[in-house]
Design a protein around this nucleic acid. Structure first.
Lengths: 140, 140
DNA sequence: CTACTACCTGAAGTAAACTCCAGGTCAAGT
DNA sequence: ACTTGACCTGGAGTTTACTTCAGGTAGTAG
């Protein structure tokens, strides 16, 4: 049921310092304590941390994650405003996805064409417009 | 052909300070100068900046972008090593895409179910309570 | 010549998200 | 009783990506 900070750290891959930091900035609710003052985390805290990690890996800032979490916690209370936030976020995610897709395509292309066996990699020179690489004299 | 720093700033939406900063950290090659010492940027610099902006918006750090640029500039010289970098990057982008998709799906679901008209939003409580939707141990 | 603006430089400051540190406490083991 | 190890706190330090600042120059306008 309840775990110590180091157990949660091991479980999530976050450091104990980070957990305390998240608590400080209110991303995590203050957990219960033992008689001696040690933090005791519960399943829902860990679930919350997993959510945070996922959101973070996707590029949300901690501030944004805070909003998402509050959203998650107040289902109906602020439905309208909350829906707006979610919609905005949703739009951002979609945009991000589109950008990522284009970057993926570009890397894909680069990898396909520039296999390291031929003598020249036309796409790269094309990409850069013209001669950036070989010709510059005085720079670095 | 050549533009001043403020022109490039206007064109790219970056600040002149940022352009000088990019030069300092060698993301941009040192541009030519007027007799009086002012920077003169060329088309290829702007193209490079656009590349940087795209890569940045997708979540690459400036350090990573530096690598991508060097990659782009040395087509064959270091084909092998370079291919590795690109492949790694490619894998990362794919992973990022997968994560983003899952977040998008989650937000989608949230938006669909929690329309702000009903009294309760079951998915939210589910998400937070205990049975985290897709919680799998060892997923990091 | 003076004013003004755009530009220059090196250096210091900022925000986000940690990370590390010093000094202190608590419960358990020997 | 003493030591050890995990934990506590408040605060300083780190990295990234800029931004701001202070003081100075180049070229143009009046």
């Amino acid at each position: 049921m309840s775990r110590t900070i180091s157990e949660v750290a091991a479980e999530t891959g976050l450091s104990a310092d980070t957990l305390r930091y998240y608590e400080k900035i209110r991303l995590l609710p203050a957990p219960g304590r033992t008689a001696g003052g040690k933090r005791l985390y519960r399943d829902q805290d860990v679930a919350r941390l997993r959510f945070i990690q996922r959101a973070k890996s996707v590029g949300f800032s901690l501030a944004e994650i805070g909003k998402l979490l509050r959203f998650r916690e107040n289902p109906v209370k602020s439905s309208r405003g909350v829906r707006e936030i979610a919609a905005t976020k949703h739009a951002q995610v979609k945009e991000q996805l589109a950008l990522l897709h284009s970057v993926e395509a570009e890397l894909d292309l680069l990898l396909q064409i520039c296999r390291g066996d031929s003598d020249t990699c036309p796409i790269l020179t094309t990409l850069d417009g013209d001669t950036t690489a070989a010709s510059k004299p005085g720079s670095r």
